[in-house]
Design a protein around this nucleic acid. Structure first.
Length: 766
DNA sequence: GAGTTTGAAACT
DNA sequence: CAGTTTCAAACTC
């Protein structure tokens, strides 16, 4: 960030300023007066003085981030584009943002929705924050979704506290950590700081400072958000309010202390998280948290891995914000980090990693719980961070994720990917998938499915993800890694060291080329970067009930003639999904589901989910299947993937029976750009949450997206799919919905809507 | 690790 | 849209 950037930020701030300032200022004063604030002061060394700083710092800081912030009070965290995004999302409360975001079809509303439910909101925030912090890097991947879930479900304030207490080292741990474990520690520390109670116990004074850093994050969340959270039982909520002040202080003051480090870590996480979350949040209103967490996880991973993620933001608003921010400089900061957030269509470099300085934890207080949980999860997951991987995250974070189950989805949706297996090891691909999938489904799942089961599943997944997650590696020799032949490129990820490619242009250095190429490809096939595997919506209801088989199918189907769909040559098999009507394969023996509807794979959905994954891993060396499954699960956001078993097995069977096309909707939806995004999950939403999402995301965004993509997703899919036959599935009537895939499918619809919005974003840059 | 097989992606 | 070529992953040895 150069001076210019600062200036720009200031200017923006000025512009944006009024709204935010007023909001912020008021809140601060309120906070100070509030009992909570007093309590915090008593706890932490920091005191009123800081609060003063806050106000001051705020003004300055906030300005910088304004654009995105705009919507949200978070402004302070502006530095990172991520934050901005996050804020935007998080700030549903703010009409302006909401309107803009809504238009874009982003999830922005999601946050608001969460706000509606105090409890849920808290969870969301917590999860999101924690997730972001801990997992930010991972978020890119699919695993994040799962991690989110875990956090969401498992994490409780108590647990958080425990973690904090348990890890005295946590305070010592620098945020910068690359490892998930470190992240977790950071989270804990942050959490500690956040939680007054915890804070008292463990962190006498410094924590707050560190917290302050985190406070930035909190700010992100936006005061409004935090406020709603404050519920009697929820300590974290209260903190948020305090945080902002502390945070600002920390920024201004702090700096060199351990606390500062911590703070940085938090900030980084927060930033990453915010960015991711923002996207994800927008996508999922209900499930927001899950995505966030995933994102966070992913980010953390990335950090460790030093990956760059190219995030193609589907969401127009986000894009705008990002662009603005980037231009302003706040984004630039993020850029300094390695990850690239494609605002608009571009891949913007987002720094997930190193820049601890910026860590902004949105709504730390709220997130505390989530953070703790996420931290734990992440720790497991983070193993992956072996290499520095750059991921290209495409577009519409949440939406995408939710929509597409793509095998390769760019972000690491850690959980999913991890589970998926070895193949996933390449964190990049995995992450992508996760990110793609993350979307709504996760939220839905979380809300709907029994927390316990999900937790277990998620945890396992996460663990796997950590193991599996890795970077995709390509070996391209002639394609220059600018064609879909290149797995990295196809996954929306930059090639990294592990790649053995020759004359590789899929590197940040050639960002322009990469983007241009992507555009071209997308112009030909809007779904080219969409996840190849899409979950069918049918599963949604089922999922809710408990186990529903999620039907997941390959978007286009396969053309296998010799492999019998029993080898990874087969994309369906590779994706862990059964063949469907779309497939033109000959002699299909796909164990996940035959084209004819046969089902070798037996699985019981929910219960099996985890098991299934494992089984797949065992059976399928790669674990690609697992990935798929994981993705599905992770995708909860998108709802798609919810569970591997779902897809694969039952889903296959079911869908197949139905003819698989339910997926269309998926396809349409899922098609979100990057593979990673890919998982669609149609289903889960099922319930109520979906509706919300739909509403928020929906309306505006969806249509646009569809249009952008080139017509209805379905149509697009059809065209793509070899078997155009099914194009008009049973639900075809959906036309009314516009692009939305199959109107007929209910749960899927919702998902579709959500996902759709994001999707378009990817391709079209606006 | 080299060579073969396979099927998607790209091209015509 | 179909056929062919190109490509790189998956697989085998």
């Amino acid at each position: 960030m150069g001076d210019n950037d600062k200036d720009q930020e200031k200017e923006r701030g000025v512009v944006m300023d009024t709204p935010e300032r007023t909001q912020i200022a008021n809140p601060l004063s309120k906070f100070e007066d509030s009992p909570v604030f007093n309590y915090i002061n008593s706890l932490s060394p920091i005191k009123p003085v800081k609060s003063v700083h806050y106000t001051q710092t705020f003004s300055s800081l906030s300005f910088a981030s304004l654009p995105s912030v705009f919507t949200s009070p978070h402004v302070s965290s502006l530095k990172d584009s991520r934050f901005l995004r996050r804020h935007q999302f998080s700030d549903p409360s703010k009409p302006e943002l909401a309107s803009e975001e809504a238009k874009k079809s982003e999830i922005g509303g999601g946050i608001l929705i969460t706000a509606q439910n105090p409890l849920s909101q808290q969870r969301d925030f917590d999860t999101t924050n924690s997730v972001n912090e801990a997992c930010v890097l991972q978020t890119n991947g699919c695993s994040n979704l799962e991690s989110r879930k875990l956090n969401y479900e498992a994490v409780s304030p108590d647990t958080m506290n425990r973690l904090k207490l348990d890890d005295p080292s946590a305070s010592d741990v620098p945020f910068i950590n690359n490892d998930s474990a470190n992240c977790s520690l950071r989270m804990e520390t942050a959490i500690q700081g956040l939680d007054p109670l915890n804070h008292n116990k463990e962190v006498p004074g410094c924590d707050w400072d560190s917290l302050i850093d985190a406070s930035d994050l909190l700010n992100f969340d936006s005061p409004s958000d935090t406020i709603p959270y404050k519920g009697p039982g929820q300590n974290t909520l209260d903190h948020p309010t305090t945080f902002p002040t502390s945070v600002t202080n920390a920024k201004a003051e702090a700096s060199d202390d351990k606390t500062s480090e911590k703070n940085e870590g938090l900030n980084n996480a927060a930033e990453n998280h915010s960015a991711l979350a923002s996207t994800s949040l927008n996508n999922f209103e209900a499930g927001e948290t899950a995505e966030d967490t995933d994102n966070e996880v992913g980010t953390n991973l990335y950090r460790g891995m030093r990956r760059r993620c190219l995030v193609f933001e589907m969401m127009g608003s986000r894009r705008k914000h990002l662009e603005e921010v980037s231009s302003g400089g706040s984004l630039n900061v993020s850029e300094s980090n390695e990850t690239v957030l494609p605002s608009e269509n571009r891949l913007l470099p987002v720094r997930t990693n190193n820049d601890s300085s910026r860590c902004i934890l949105p709504g730390i207080g709220l997130h505390l719980n989530a953070l703790a949980s996420t931290l734990v999860d992440h720790k497991v997951v983070k193993h992956e961070s072996s290499g520095s991987v750059r991921q290209l995250t495409i577009g519409p974070p949440a939406a995408y994720r939710s929509m597409a189950s793509g095998q390769e989805s760019m972000t690491d949706v850690p959980s999913l990917e991890n589970e998926i297996g070895p193949a996933a090891q390449d964190g990049v691909s995995v992450a992508e998938d996760a990110s793609k999938a993350l979307g709504f489904v996760v939220n839905e799942e979380l809300s709907q499915t029994s927390p316990r089961k999900k937790r277990q599943v998620i945890v396992r997944r996460v663990e796997h993800a950590g193991e599996t997650e890795a970077c995709k590696r390509c070996n391209c020799k002639k394609s220059k890694c600018l064609k879909l032949y290149c797995e990295c490129f196809a996954a929306g990820v930059y090639c990294v060291e592990p790649c053995s490619c020759q004359e590789c242009f899929n590197k940040p250095i050639h960002e322009d080329t990469v983007l241009a190429t992507r555009k071209q490809i997308e112009s030909r096939n809007p779904l080219a970067f969409a996840p190849k595997v899409i979950k069918t919506s049918d599963s949604m209801q089922e999922d809710e009930s408990s186990n529903t088989p999620a039907s997941a199918r390959h978007k286009r189907g396969c053309n296998c003639k010799k492999s019998g769909c029993l080898k990874k040559y087969c994309e369906c098999y590779q994706g862990g999904v059964g063949c469907s009507i779309n497939c033109r394969c000959e002699g299909c023996k796909n164990t996940f589901g035959r084209k004819d509807g046969g089902f070798d794979f037996i699985g019981s959905e929910m219960d099996l989910e985890v098991n299934v994954v494992d089984d797949f891993e065992g059976n399928v060396t790669d674990g690609s299947l697992q990935k798929m499954a994981i993705l599905n699960e992770a995708e909860p956001v998108s709802a798609t993937p919810a569970t591997p078993s779902r897809f694969g097995r039952q889903s296959i069977a079911l869908p197949i029976s139905s003819k698989g096309k339910p997926p269309r909707s998926f396809l349409a939806i899922g098609s979100s750009s990057s593979q990673r995004f890919g998982k669609l999950n149609p289903f889960k939403g099922g319930g109520k949450p979906d509706n919300k999402q739909l509403q928020t995301v929906g309306e505006d965004a969806i249509p646009e997206i569809l249009e952008e993509n080139g017509g209805s997703p379905i149509s697009g899919i059809k065209s793509i799919s070899p078997n155009s036959k099914r194009v008009s599935p049973p639900h075809s009537s959906s036309i009314g919905i516009g692009m939305s895939p199959a109107p007929g499918q209910r749960s899927s619809r919702k998902l579709i809507l959500q996902s759709i919005p994001s999707f378009p974003c990817l391709t079209p840059k606006h």
